[in-house]
Design a protein around this nucleic acid. Sequence first.
DNA 1: TACAGGCCAGAAAAGGCTTTCTCAGCCTAG
DNA 2: CTAGGCTGAGAAAGCCTTTTCTGGCCTGTA
Lengths: 339, 339
Amino acid sequence: MAVNLKDVAKRAGVSVPTASRVLSGSDYPVLPDLRDRVLQAAEELDYVPNVQAQGLLRGNTGMIGVLAGDVGDPYFSEMINGIHDVATRRRLLVAICQTERDVEQELAYFKMLQAHRAAVVILAGSGLADQDYQERLSSRARSFLTGGGRVVSIGTPILEVDNVRVDNTSGAIDLAQHLVDLGHRDVGVLAGPANVGSTIERLAGLRQVIEGAGGVLRVRHGAPTRDDAYTGAGNLLEQHPSITALVGSADQMAMGAMAWLRDQGRVVPADLSVAGFNDIDVARDLTPALTTVRLPLRQMGEAALQIALEEPDAAEQAAVRWLGTELLVRKSTGPARAR
Amino acid sequence: MAVNLKDVAKRAGVSVPTASRVLSGSDYPVLPDLRDRVLQAAEELDYVPNVQAQGLLRGNTGMIGVLAGDVGDPYFSEMINGIHDVATRRRLLVAICQTERDVEQELAYFKMLQAHRAAVVILAGSGLADQDYQERLSSRARSFLTGGGRVVSIGTPILEVDNVRVDNTSGAIDLAQHLVDLGHRDVGVLAGPANVGSTIERLAGLRQVIEGAGGVLRVRHGAPTRDDAYTGAGNLLEQHPSITALVGSADQMAMGAMAWLRDQGRVVPADLSVAGFNDIDVARDLTPALTTVRLPLRQMGEAALQIALEEPDAAEQAAVRWLGTELLVRKSTGPARAR
DNA sequence: TACAGGCCAGAAAAGGCTTTCTCAGCCTAG
DNA sequence: CTAGGCTGAGAAAGCCTTTTCTGGCCTGTA
């Protein structure tokens, strides 16, 4: 059906190895005459090499695999954009797998990428703070590394795996300090699932400062989505009308909160302050523009792939690259209203 | 390095074919005794099958390839989400390629997917209205189809290729009629590149109605990004202060326009109306909420993959699935201010 | 008892490519 | 003029699986 190397060789009147040497960019010498004939034959027949066959020999196909929780979540999609930017520059194929933040799915997809003999797997996944999960993931990663692959995790550090990290806690501290400075002492948090690493770190940072200032933190866990936070904001404020500031553990949750407040006729930040995390693209275009802790999501993706493509550290030390956060004070936070 | 079938067979004390029959889900009979031993050996050794080798025999690896212009553009990313939803349900691997709206890159990536023996290629790409481009793409598609692959294009119809379409023109007509009804006769358009099919169709629809009502359409082509439209809105309004409504040929461009207007202290929709196309997720959360022509982007992605996974039409007729648009009137459009 | 026919394990082939390995032919140097 | 050394083409082996193909053993029947 498809044209193969044998067809090309036959048409060019040479042997298969000769054709291979010309077309695969080998440095084995081939006389210009034959070389031209091969090139021409390949062109005429529209020869497309079979990466499977090549991969069978090379051990991998150069494919990059990415494990992401939810492709629709800006947190992941902006990291994926970063990965793509690097990949596109190098003409690499990127396979994105959506784990739906499910442990079994994440492991199954990881195994699938391994079955496809991906060269690199980037774990942009959920990063659960769960012993059993960590162990299983770690053991799968080890198996993949043994097969000659490269693994980089973003966010959650995993044993023996290169890692791109961001200091969520210190970002949260900065944000909390900003709120405290504005007089907020009763802060509601619309948080993602309680077992996700980044959420835990952010809550810890917030709690430290708010409670340190004699305030209270009221946390409501839910799905990390705009719509869930919309509902959640209502619940939280009904239960605790004294809240003066709402923080989303991700920007889209802050957006949900703002939407709910708007629908209730409450004015941000005059009535309530709102802030988020991540600084997704649209945060600046909201009204009021969202105060948020910026994470360099794109760069995190870029860095992950770059690390993966570098020579592995000879010392067998897992590399860790820290990236910083930055508090962006915009228009959605203001002085706490007097109670 | 990696564990292969031979290792499993040896450990289980059986031949390679027997191990294969157990592990690959063949219906060839294997005695329960041996079957168990194979299963156990595979488990113990953490055997991960080699999809390359399988693909070499089967002809493809079941991978789905997607050609998208820009992964960061919500237009593409929401379609990709739809594709992922279907793919995740069926446990398929999805490789996303970013063509950067470049013809050569698109073709190169298409060829690469072909080299990887993808089972399906979805062209969510640029859809240029260019004779030469169409022919080259068509010929590559034909080559891929010959090799037993499936191709579906979204938006641009391509000869002999299944297609998911949306009636951009009628959507544009609806929007234009809405603007005309509000009294707008001088409409500025922040449009994407002039050679992109969807842009052409949208402009045609707008022009038909606006000019039909005795109005004028002032088009400014540029990059289909928020930032370019921000600049573009300034240019357009400086040159034509008489404009009473701005339309972005995609929502993010309308967002750019709104941002510029806000920065200039102009009020939407009192001073100027703004509208967009696509209805990306955040359109509803802008202030004012964006009037837009909704495209079922997710569904388009879903439909594309579903078509690709169905049995090909025996009649060799390229299937075409039309999806509808819907005008969503929100808060960003209002009566034209008197001049 | 003998033979046809199932059942199922294993040997062999195939799939497309790359990489030794072999060796023919030619050039150069002694 | 011959031996040794290059150059480079092609034969063969190998990568990992799956799918015939072969054939031994056993059952059932004549």
